[in-house]
C-alpha cells in the first residue's frame, strides 16, 4: 500500500556556515513551512503542517527527514496533532529520520490530542551516524471529548526506535487503551493526566550533565513525576507525568537549555509560536 493521505520529504544540507533545505517534497495533506532562521544561520527551523486540521479514519501519513553531514535542524509542528474519531482503521503516522555524521536535530512536536473513539499509531524510526545529536520530545494529552471527560479515546500507540550505526539503541513502545486499563491507576499514569517522553542522544553526554539535569529537575517535583536515566549509548531518556502540557513543555525547555549550555554554550531557541 503506497497511498498516503499526506507525504512529506524534507532534506537539509550544510553549505559553508549555514544549513539550507536541499529537498522539500510534499503531497496531499502534509506541508512544511520554508526555513525560518532565528538567531543562528546554522539552524533553520521548520514547522510541519497537517492541512486537514487533524487525522481521521484510515488516514496514513508519512514523513521523511534527512540531515546531511554537519547539517542542523530545528523541527516542530504548527499545532497539536489532533486525532479525530477513527472507528474502522486507526490513523497512522510513519516517520523516518536520518542523521548523517555530525548532524544535529531538535524535534519537539506539539502534543498529541486524541478525541473520543480515536485510534492512532505512530511509528518513528531514527537512523543516527557517529557524531550526530538528537533531542526528541513528545507529549500525550488525555484527549478531548464533547462532555469534557478525559481518556475517551480508544488507543494511542507510540513506537520509537533509534539505531546508531545500524545498531538498535532505543526501543520505546507505549500503548494507552483507557477502556482496558484505568489510566489514573498505579503503574499507569499514577493519577496524572499528561505523559511526556524525551530522548537525547549525543556523544558529549557525561556524568556532569546528568548531575546538573538531575539537580535542576528536582525543583519540578511538585508539579510532575520525573524519571531520568542514561541509555545504553551516550544519551538519556526522560519520562514525565504531569497535569498539563505547559508543565511538561517547561520541563523539556529547561532540559534543552541545560544541554545547549553544557554542550554548545548556547541559549535555547524559542519556537515563538504564541
Amino acid at each position: 500500500m503506497d497511498h498516503w493521505t499526506g507525504f512529506l520529504r524534507l532534506a537539509v544540507q550544510r553549505k559553508k556556515e549555514t544549513t539550507i533545505a536541499s529537498e522539500v517534497f510534499h503531497q496531499g495533506a502534509l506541508k512544511v513551512t520554508p526555513a525560518i532562521y532565528f538567531d543562528d544561520p546554522q539552524q533553520p527551523c521548520f514547522y510541519l503542517m497537517s492541512l486537514g486540521g487533524g487525522y481521521v479514519d484510515g488516514d496514513r501519513y508519512k514523513l521523511e527527514i534527512h540531515l546531511g553531514e554537519q547539517a542542523q535542524m530545528l523541527l516542530t509542528t504548527q499545532s497539536a496533532t489532533k486525532i479525530f474519531k477513527t472507528i474502522n482503521h486507526p490513523a497512522i503516522q510513519e516517520m523516518n529520520i536520518v542523521l548523517e555524521r555530525g548532524s544535529y536535530l531538535e524535534y519537539m512536536p506539539d502534543p498529541v490530542i486524541a478525541y473520543e473513539h480515536a485510534q492512532y499509531q505512530q511509528n518513528t524510526i531514527v537512523h543516527m551516524n557517529p557524531g550526530s545529536v538528537m533531542i526528541y520530545g513528545d507529549i500525550i494529552t488525555p484527549g478531548w471529548s464533547p462532555d469534557g471527560n478525559w481518556f475517551c479515546y480508544h488507543t494511542l500507540q507510540i513506537k520509537t526506535q533509534v539505531y546508531l550505526e545500524e545498531q538498535l539503541v532505543v526501543f520505546d513502545h507505549l500503548q494507552l487503551r483507557p477502556a482496558n486499563d484505568p489510566m489514573a491507576g498505579i503503574g499507569l499514569l499514577e493519577g496524572y493526566t499528561h505523559l511526556g517522553s524525551m530522548i537525547v542522544i549525543g556523544e558529549r553526554t557525561d556524568p556532569e550533565l546528568m548531575e546538573r539535569l538531575s539537580e535542576s529537575l528536582k525543583c519540578c517535583s511538585s508539579v510532575a513525576h520525573i524519571g531520568l536515566s542514561t541509555l545504553m549509548v551516550p544519551g538519556f531518556s526522560l519520562r514525565v507525568l504531569a497535569y498539563s502540557t505547559q508543565d511538561i513543555e517547561k520541563i523539556f525547555r529547561s532540559v534543552q537549555k541545560l544541554i545547549r549550555e553544557h554542550w554548545f554554550g548556547k541559549q535555547v531557541t524559542s519556537f515563538r509560536k504564541y
Partner: peptide, 18 residues
C-alpha cells in the same frame, strides 16, 4: 506487540536511581 511498557512502572524503575 513487543516491548509495550506501562509508563508508571517504568518511571518507578527510572526513579529508583534517586
Amino acid at each position: 506487540d513487543f516491548g509495550i511498557v506501562s509508563p508508571g512502572i517504568e518511571l518507578s524503575q527510572m526513579r529508583h536511581e534517586q
